[in-house]
Design a protein around this nucleic acid. Structure first.
Ligand code: MN
Ligand code: MN
Ligand code: ZN
Ligand code: ZN
Lengths: 139, 139
DNA sequence: AAAAACATGCAACTTAAGTGCATTATTTCT
DNA sequence: AGAAATAATGCACTTAAGTTGCATGTTTTT
């Protein structure tokens, strides 16, 4: 049984052909991808199926959705959090205004913020926009 | 000459009827509003005109757009920054999962974040999701 | 093997956002 | 003031992401 197949099963996702392919696709890139990116990454592609597949991944905690301010949802594999650590999704995201790529800075956690009385924090999203390393060295 | 008229002129926005009304509308609420909110706030309303009006306000620095993760753009008046202080847009936003309202926490600035080598920060967006003061006291 | 549960494909719908263009209002120029 | 230029408004239409319904195909369970 393949490696990916195991990962899916661990997350209670049935390892169908498309799911294996999508996982492979995601694991091969280090930037967050849109549904369109995924769609154009496959020869055989059915928008809806890909959509439902990524949503399944998300629900089962394999992937997190990223809202980088472009108005288009992006997705990236969760870190190999073997299970329960949900604090992993509190890392920040960087969106490059030049190449339009969005990347997870997984070891840059969002600092603690104190809120006014009465406000209860459940989740946070921090996106930094600017120029990424690749684009800034290109000069 | 009215108060609002002056504010608009200071921002080089011609004070037409609709613009005066929209400014008044925005200044009367302390939460960020969607274009739909604005539209339903007027008897006479032309989506496109309201859309272009809010975009004009945004371009001229009267209003800032807020991306709270709902996928729908919201807008709020800038603080009475009498001119150049653009650091004002680095406050954080709170989105209540219960009442769905989004509010500017204008005096909660986004803390400084150090980035990996090569990354240049130009802008930031921090949204905290949870339960707002009104909803949490309502119990 | 039959029944139940789940995945896939295709079409259609929803909604926010944005554009083109004709009309109307305001400002500027002579 | 009147004409010309510029800007605002209204209406129709387009775009694109996201989402759902339903029929068909596949896998799992009993
Ligand atoms: Mn991430
Ligand atoms: Mn704000
Ligand atoms: Zn870049
Ligand atoms: Zn609330």
């Amino acid at each position: 049984m393949g490696d990916i197949e195991l990962v899916l099963k661990e997350h209670h996702i049935r390892p169908t052909a498309i799911r294996l392919l999508m996982y492979k696709f995601l694991s091969e890139r280090d930037i967050a991808v849109t549904l369109n990116d995924i769609e154009s990454g496959f020869d055989k592609s059915e928008r809806t199926t890909l959509y439902r597949t990524i949503k399944t991944f998300e629900k089962k905690g394999l992937v997190h959705q990223i809202d980088d301010g472009t108005g288009i949802a992006k997705y990236a594999l969760d870190e190999k959090g073997t299970g329960e650590n949900q604090s992993q999704d509190l890392h920040l995201h960087f969106h490059c205004e030049k190449c339009n790529e969005t990347i997870c800075l997984t070891d840059h956690k969002i600092p603690h913020i104190s809120l006014p009385k009465g406000f209860v924090s459940k989740d946070m999203n921090l996106v930094i926009k600017g120029i990424c390393d690749k684009c800034s060295e290109k000069k």
